[in-house]
Amino acid sequence: MLQTRKQDTILQKLLPSTKLWVALALILAVMLIRNYALSFIVIGISIALIFYEKKTDLFKLIVVTMVVMFFSMYGIHGAIAPNIDKANDPVLFSIFGIDYYLNGFKYASHYYLCVIPLMCSLFLLFTSMDMADLGATMCQMGLPYKGVFTFIDSFQVMKLLGKEMNQIRDAQRARGLETEGNLLARFKAFIPIMVPVVASSIVKVQDQAIAMDTKGFNSLNKKTIYRELIPSALDKLIKVISILVCVGTLAYVILSKMGIISPFMTNII
């Protein structure tokens, strides 16, 4: 094997194809069924695994988004959601003279408890994925090589450009550029930093294109992949479970909409 990858935990050992199936199963189950209990279970398991995988530093940014969204959605929908009948609906509580209704919270929960479990679980799945393995998986799935390259290369270029930007910001600060102070001063600092970032990248494009061409990027031969992705027993088991969940979810939704089965996964409140 030519490559080495970090595979200390169970999650890191799973193949990208397995994680893609799990992602699909979660997306279908959470979005189509919209059951609060299921959402909380997914949130709980995801957060536990985030701590286990030691991804808490990255997750902090997601938490900030979740908190802002919570206060926005419940704070606004709780009081003025479209499904509220102010004349008849029960008021749960009042803050600063603003009444909050149960129906408003239900409306907010319908969306919030769909977005948050997916944020937690998909963040975990994708940050534990090896990008080169993902690229190999996508090629094996039959996706065109150039498309896969473009997708995977984006992650790489983002990281590199981020480092360049820090260097460039230091270089401009060393020539007297102020990056602190009032809004106008900070806004003025944007162009002297962004222009060298963009320009130094575009300067390299022609050379990169020639380099890629000389390495056979445009060759019409089928590309081979040097990464060996051998599914373990756990990969196969999780894949089967995920497929069953996908099929089960679709069947439940279709059959309950047709009235053939009762929608037993509806929320109690």
Binding site: E164, Q167, I168, D170, A171, Q172, A174, R175, I191, P192, V195, P196, A199, S200, V203
Partner: peptide, 12 residues
């Protein structure tokens, strides 16, 4: 004054 290694980082 500080002159960085890569001149492309300072030119804009």
């Amino acid at each position: 004054g500080y002159v960085f290694q890569n001149p492309n980082h300072q030119i804009f």
